[in-house]
Amino acid sequence: MAFIHLNSALAFTVIPLEIWDCPGDIALETLKAETPLSQFAALIFVVDIQDLYQPTITKMVETIVSLYQENPDIDLEVFVHKSDVLSEEYKIENFRHLQQRVMDELMYIGNEYEQLPINFQLTSIYDHSLHDAFSRVMHKLIDCLPYLEDLLNVFCSNSQSSKAFLFDINSRLYVATDASPVDPPTHNLCNDYLQMLNAFGPLYKSITATSPSAPRAALPSVTPAPSRSRTTSLPGSTGSRPLSTKPLFYPSASTSLASSTAGAGAGTTLTYHLITPHLALLALIPTTVFEARRGLVEYNVVFFREGVQEICQVEEEARRVVQT
């Protein structure tokens, strides 16, 4: 019996996730023998968008219902996967059709199941819809989500940002976002940007150059930690800067984009700021704002970072208490 436990691959700081990748033909009884079903916070059932035959649907619904009976608190999710293989039109049609079939099946089992809260999402590994879907599942499991969202909302309004995400760097899932709706193309762009930055690091990593004091892998203590102090050093000058008082260094990046539809001056800047060793803030800010008031944006990042680090610390402590 092969279960794959994927808890180390996704090293979250906000919530430690443990993912059980179950084989398609698994019987609930075997899973139950491994661990009590009440231990699971969410069930993600993956179904191929082209495989909408009756046995598949019957089996899926049976699994969902029996898991729900054992654990009514469980979050039920269905990923309608490989959506890339169908055209836009067929994709939506199949997606609706599947939901209808599931509802019919639930009704057939019993009236009390008609209202079973199941979330359906279209996914594919060929774009970032899977990242988006997984992020949304994760949000239901994060207790401190409202606090993170508040911080993001404050950041957005103070920095004139139209959208901001707090990403887990390695998995590229977003832990939280501000209140504005997530528009898939924007989410894809941020995800691609993060992917590019992740890839750049090792490319130009020097074996001899000393890197600035990056935040340690453990959670840094909550001290006001502005990003690298902005003393302007002239090019070529061998600056003799006192290194002893160097504040903690948080990597950052920005890329300016020019809208090819709107006129000149309508550009957007995508910013990236490391918040904790595992989390980064990505935000869309009008280029004019970013260029004129970069200091203010960076100040807002520091404020945001302190807030997130505090939340993480509280969470961490709470977890320790639970464990001991």
Partner: peptide, 20 residues
């Protein structure tokens, strides 16, 4: 290419990463 999909055009990039 990602930028072009949201009808934006890549312009410039600046990085202060841990490595460089």
């Amino acid at each position: 290419y990602s930028c072009s999909r949201v009808r934006e055009e890549f312009h410039a990039l600046e990085m202060e990463l841990g490595e460089f």
